[in-house]
Nucleic acid binder design. Structure first.
Lengths: 193, 193
DNA sequence: CCAAAACATTGAACTAGTTCAATAAATGAA
DNA sequence: TTCATTTATTGAACTAGTTCAATGTTTTGG
């Protein structure tokens, strides 16, 4: 059940008692979103922070040349938002799209601010979560600076095998920062090993 | 004066009253560090979080091939640490070196934990700071996926002109993820414009 | 179940960026 | 000031990755 998933996720990063946990979870509302539908469109203000309970999303941006670049994918147990847009309520830089029929638990900006005031531990919870996200992005940054496309591909499928199998070549190539044709060549090369 | 710089930096991200501000600042200790000296060595546990008040640092990692990759540079008014190592007190992935004679204000792990308990607003302060750092790293990630080396170079010198002039080609190339020879060629090409 | 659309594969020609090597210029320590 | 070391520049040969185009394969919606 999806609220259970949220509770477990929270307890990994902060100590809330049962009552706080309940108050926290009550601030979230489930939303079902069909394959290919958008949860956020680039340019709109991001009105939510979301916790994925089913399915898979891609978070990407369109550059000036109309090319898409995937910042990350999010499956069950991941959080999704455009932090900058959500925190400062300015137009988003990112688009969030469901890759399959999915479900999320959403909290809006005012309710989250309210939670920060109501439950001091929530401040810590999101500090710790944000730190962890930052650390993994720092590692990815270094990996992108230092590794060849082959190794980034192999690293991805090793680290996220269940996500990898949900993705098309185009989507994964866009995350890796290479053309989908080249990814196809990497695949046929590494498949034989 | 360096404490003033720290106070101003904090007040950008949280509301502390004068007393809290003083308590906060008292937890920091100044350290002078000479050019080329190390503040943190890869593999050691990071015992501090630092606020730069003078000079310039590079934060980098050595990969298995012995190549250095710069995660970021930090001058006056920037924070430096290996968050993962500092937060969890495990061996650091990063090295931090002074590029010129520098000064930092340092806080150790126990004192920071103590501040979190003493001043609830500090939790928010670091949450907001970490969020901002994450947002700018997300943008850099996208820029690295979508832009050519020329544009990343031009973007850097436009965004950080005062840092750019402190760096050697080797250091900047390592941040941009290109060879220093190629940076040299980009420079001679773009200088003529 | 079929047609249309989206996706994957492959090859050929190309380009951005690397590597290596040689030389010049700048910096630093004595 | 000098010598040694580090840094920057440039060119030539190379390689990783792109682009374009053609063909085959899978998915999707009606």
């Amino acid at each position: 059940m999806s609220i259970k998933l949220l509770k477990d996720n929270i307890l990994k990063n902060a100590k809330l008692d049962n009552e706080e946990l309940q108050t926290f979870c009550d601030a979230f509302h489930p939303k079902i979103i069909a394959k290919k539908q958008y949860l956020l469109n680039q340019g709109d203000v991001c009105k939510f922070e979301g916790f994925v309970t089913k399915g898979c999303f891609r978070v990407f941006t369109l550059d000036e040349d109309g090319k898409e670049h995937v910042l990350y994918f999010a499956t069950k147990d991941w959080w999704i938002t455009d932090i900058d847009s959500f925190t400062n309520q300015n137009p988003s830089f990112l688009t969030i799209q469901a890759l399959e029929d999915s479900e999320v638990l959403l909290i809006d900006h005012a309710d989250k601010e309210h939670l920060y005031e109501q439950i001091p531990q929530v401040e810590k919870l999101f500090r710790v979560m944000t730190q962890k996200t930052l650390v993994s992005l720092q590692r990815r940054m270094i990996a992108n600076l230092s590794q060849t496309a082959d190794n980034r591909y192999l690293g991805f499928i090793e680290k996220y095998p269940e996500i990898a199998q949900k993705l098309t070549n185009l989507q994964l190539a866009s995350y890796l920062g290479i053309s989908h044709e080249f990814l196809s060549k990497i695949r046929s090369k590494t498949a034989s090993k």
